[in-house]
């Protein structure tokens, strides 16, 4: 088992005819993901290396049976692309695009939460990889193998770093989920951890947070109340000064709010082990699984 993406994933890529969209979409197909369609308005009827392109997501769902959409379009068009996929009945939308205006995401988020048919992961995320089953996004799959560690993170490369340290200790992953570095993302740590909790293959959950917002603090409460599996956490940004955006639009300490120290404390107070660096996280994970 795994969560969110697997052998049943039928992927449509919004922006498949673009440079990034075709590079990563085809890369995902080579990994074994069932890439059934692309969508680019006015390019319907064409194909990208044999993958049919449609004018609308609705057509891709009706004619190619897509159930998962990856959004790879530029920021001004991304909110629209997410809403189109949701309107077409796609169950899971994964948005890789970085730089979507925060107000657009407020509207998208509020709308999607009202109609629970569609789950959004991202934006500004590396995607989701279920090793050995499916890869949707830009995660370099060759570092990861099948296993029992569920990994959820606000950051891409940091996830690869931690995943790789786990791999060196002989651990693989059920699924790796990048939830994204924006202030408003479709799925929270809690949403993903709830899935890992009910996934029989996942025996340990590693969560990788960073400065900004209060999602990690809320997650600490949730873990204490509702998660039976061991959780190991990492928080990045202890040295970040207040008021500065550290790369990710959502990674900002506002006054005294959103600090790494507060997050680590909140998690530790609820019994979650927090590693001080990626190596300590991998060590703690090994111990928890020993």
């Amino acid at each position: 088992m795994s969560i969110l993406v697997d052998k049943d994933t039928k992927l449509v890529v919004a922006g498949l005819t673009g440079r990034e969209g075709s590079f990563h979409g085809l890369n995902n197909r080579r990994y074994g993901t069932d890439l059934v369609a692309g969508v680019t308005p006015s390019k319907g009827g064409q194909d990208v290396e044999g993958v049919p392109v449609f004018d609308t997501v609705h057509a891709a769902v009706q004619e190619a049976g897509a159930n998962t959409a990856m959004v790879f379009v530029p920021p001004p068009a991304a909110a629209d692309a997410i809403l189109e996929a949701a309107d077409a009945g796609v169950e899971l939308v994964i948005c890789i695009t970085e730089g979507i205006p925060a107000h657009d995401m407020l509207r998208v988020y509020t709308h999607l939460r009202r109609d629970e048919r569609t789950r959004l992961v991202g934006p500004n995320c590396p995607g989701i990889l279920s090793p050995g089953k499916a890869n949707v996004g830009i995660i370099p799959a060759h570092f990861f193998s099948e296993g029992n560690v569920g990994l959820v993170s606000r950051s891409g490369t940091l996830t690869y770093q931690i995943g790789n340290e786990l791999a060196q200790r002989g651990f693989g992953n059920s699924t790796i989920v990048g939830i994204g570095g924006d202030p408003v993302v479709g799925s929270s740590f809690i949403d993903v951890i709830a899935q890992f909790e009910s996934d029989p293959e996942t025996e340990l959950i590693v969560m990788c947070g960073e400065i900004g917002g209060d999602e990690e603090e809320r997650t600490a409460d949730y873990i204490a109340e509702s998660v039976s599996k061991p959780v190991v956490a990492y928080i990045a940004g202890f040295t970040a000064p207040p008021g500065k955006t550290m790369g990710h639009a959502g990674a900002i300490v506002s006054g005294s709010k959103g600090t790494a120290a507060a997050k680590a404390e909140a998690l530790e107070a609820k019994g979650v082990r927090v590693g001080r660096n990626p190596t300590e996280v991998a060590d703690a994970a090994s111990e928890a699984l020993a």
């Binding site: 570095g181 960073e210 202890f238 970040a240």
Partner: peptide
């Protein structure tokens, strides 16, 4: 490369007793 990894790098430098000059 990558915001999270860079933040983590700053933290690890601080843990090693140094002080980062930039992100």
């Amino acid at each position: 490369n990558g915001a999270g990894l860079v933040m983590s790098t700053l933290d690890v430098v601080a843990q090693a007793g140094g002080r980062p000059a930039n992100f």
